[in-house]
Structures are given as C-alpha cells and as structure tokens.
C-alpha cells in the first residue's frame, strides 16, 4: 500500500444526510464500513465487487487507490478502484506504466446524483497520475443496463461522458474480449509526463504487436 494522502469531497444528499467521496481508503477503514446490499447479483447483472473484503485486498496493493462513496459515515454506496492490472492481462506487459480503472460502481438507489463523476475525479487526484497511462475497459456484458434502463449504446455514451472530462479518450485495440462486441469501449488517459517512447509502446501493445 502506498503512503499517499487521502482526499475527500463532501456532498449533501437530498435527504439531508452527507456523502463523503474519499480516495486511498485503507483496508482498515474499509473494514469498518458497511457494504450496500445492492452490490450483489441481480436478474441481469452482477456487481463487479460483491464482497467488501475484495476492496480491502486491492486497497493493500502498491499505488492502488480505492475511492469510496460513504453515506452517513458508515455505509459504502459507491466505489472506484484504480490499480495495476492483473499480471495475466495484456496490459500488465508495460509494468507500472499502466494503471487500470478496475471498477466504478454506484449502488442502484444512489445513481443519477453525479456520484460516479465525483469518484472518477478522486481517482484522478492520484499523485502519480501524470506519469501513468490510465486505462478503462468497458465490457457491455458487465453493465447494469437493466437497472439504468439504458441500451448498451446509451450506456457506452454515458461512460464516454463520464471519463472524457478527465482527459480520457477512446482508443482502438485488438484485445479479443473487447472486440467481441462493438458496444465495448476502451479509453485511456495519457499522463503529461509520459514519454513519446512510452506512448508508442502503448500503441503497439494495444494491437498486440512488437515493432
């Protein structure tokens, strides 16, 4: 776990409560909170993280930032995870140059309150952000289309709008899982201090090539 300072945004809820969006949550902090029951299995959708312990585990990994949306000081209603990719994945081949927005999710009753945007903002205040290429992989089969009453295309557009204000843009890739559906999306943000050489390495990696 990195020793990065925590940042926090405080939002008021329409019900008169408070909602904190906090970055770099530690495993100990996460352990003291309740995980919303909506993070589970639904008819056409399963949450990316269904157990609080999984967030604790990833919070303990190097440089990772687990951002939590915490209602009334004790209840996790949203989360975002910025971490290094799984070593088995293509994106791990460039080592610590790449970090992944591994997950972003807001509990169904708490959606449409711009909590997702606040979570992304807090993930992007990472001290190493300008030295990294941060990417996001959106597989349409992991999206809660049912809960949001959106088509995959509308959901895709929503993801674009969520990430673009933070410097992300869509890139093409031949990664096989992404190519399975045209609705899938791959976005990345290239940090200001990433060298031209590393940007090139990223380009070749996206297409599974060695020039």
């Amino acid at each position: 776990m990195g020793s990065f300072p925590q940042n926090e945004i405080l939002l008021a809820t329409p019900e008169g409560g408070e909602l904190r969006i906090r970055s770099f949550c530690t495993p100990e902090q996460i352990r003291q909170l309740n995980f919303d029951r909506q993070f589970g299995t639904h008819a056409h959708y399963r949450s990316l993280y269904t157990r609080r312990e999984s967030l604790e585990k990833i919070a303990a990994t190097p440089d990772a930032s687990v951002v939590l949306a915490i209602a009334d000081g004790k209840h996790i209603v949203g989360f975002g995870v910025l971490a290094y990719p799984d070593p088995e994945e293509r994106w791990a081949q460039l080592g610590p140059l790449l970090m992944e927005v591994n997950a972003i999710e807001v509990s169904r009753p708490w959606r449409a309150r711009r909590i997702g945007q606040a979570i992304v903002r807090m993930m992007m205040v990472h001290p190493l952000i300008e030295e990294k290429i941060v990417y996001f992989v959106g597989y349409s089969w992991t999206w809660d289309l049912d809960g949001n009453r959106l088509s995959a295309q509308q959901y895709r557009r929503m993801m674009e709008k969520l990430f673009e204000p933070f410097g992300f843009q869509e890139y093409e890739t031949n990664e096989p899982n992404l190519c399975l559906k045209p609705e899938n999306i791959f976005m990345a943000r290239i940090g200001a201090r990433v060298s031209a050489e590393d940007q090139n390495r990223f380009k070749w990696l996206r297409f599974g090539m060695t020039p």
């Binding site: 056409h44 349409s140 289309l145 049912d146 949001n148 959106l150 088509s151 995959a152 295309q153 609705e183």
Partner: peptide
C-alpha cells in the same frame, strides 16, 4: 443492433 435494454 440492440436498441432496448430488454434485448440483453
């Protein structure tokens, strides 16, 4: 091309 959420 999927149009409605119910297609999925």
């Amino acid at each position: 091309l999927h149009k409605d959420w119910g297609d999925f």
